[in-house]
Amino acid sequence: MEKSSRDNGTTALSDVSAALDSVVNISERWLAFLRRRLDRVRIISSVLTGLITWSIIAGATVGLLIITYTPYYIIHNQALMLILFGIYAVAGAFSGMACYIIISRKRTPDLDELAILIAEMKDSNGGVKLTANALAAAEKIIEILPRTIRKRNQDAILFGVAAFILSVIVVHLLPLDIIVGVGVWFYFKHELDKSYAKGVSRLEGEKKLFEKKKKEFMDSL
């Protein structure tokens, strides 16, 4: 059916245009997905930075107070501690936001290049680079995906920090809270590493298959 319809010049051109339009649409969806994923990584990094900043300042203050005064002083000045921790939380939030702004300013050449390819495909409207750009877009997506998957490694740390905070609120026993946090972190790290390794090896396989098919196509000419 497809072959016979392609015997007619006009139908063939519309078939080709439809196929390339589909490539443009799919590429746009991938670009949107990759940008969302990148933004998620930025948010996670910022949250982690904020939490780490807060923990370091708060930890240092508590340590300093214990050394200078006594634990008794801390227990009996809870209002002061709350105010201090509140100020540190604001400092943490600011450092998180600053981190987000700095990371957002970092250029993403791969995604920018993909966006340019898509824009050119849409603008060219049957132009001379449409097929070459479609090929470049497909190759770019296959190339970017394994790297994007690797960037999710911070998720495990975030789960660990969340578990630690939850444990601090519920259990109130620092050694146990640390064990819970570290345990959750390692558990998710192990699980995510396993699934990432699987995903990355599959995507690397797709990359190799793409190169193989490219060679096969050239050999067939």
Binding site: R6, V16, K213
Partner: peptide
């Protein structure tokens, strides 16, 4: 040449449709 062009376009479309995360 026409057949090669059609095959090229079909292959690009199949490739991009086959990409899964």
């Amino acid at each position: 040449g026409i057949d090669a062009y059609h095959r090229l376009v079909d292959w690009i479309k199949e490739t991009i449709e086959g990409v899964k995360l």
